[in-house]
Amino acid sequence: MNPANYLYVAALLFTIGAIGVVVRRNAIVVFMCIELMLNAANLAFVTFARINGNLDGQVMAFFTMVVAACEVVVGLAIIVTIYRSRRSASVDDASLLKR
């Protein structure tokens, strides 16, 4: 089997994640979609590592995971903080930027 097929899957997952960020309003779902995009990128990294025959891609994916973990921790903390003051996890409610 051609490993490039994994790349197609990664591309589709990434696209779905990107659209999810745009269309969903629940901040937690938006976050999960971001994670989906990161995972899609990781899949591509791993696939490229296999195609090129060295492990640098895997190391990169490893770092991505660490950064994603950090992001999740801080992001979820922000969501909790917003929720505590607004009683809402909808990203549309935090729309004060236009004024």
Partner: peptide, 17 residues
């Protein structure tokens, strides 16, 4: 264009990409 909604800004980023 400045709706204040994060999602519309994300849409612009996506369109840029």
């Amino acid at each position: 264009t400045q709706t204040g909604f994060v999602r519309s800004y994300a849409m612009w980023i996506l369109l840029g990409a």
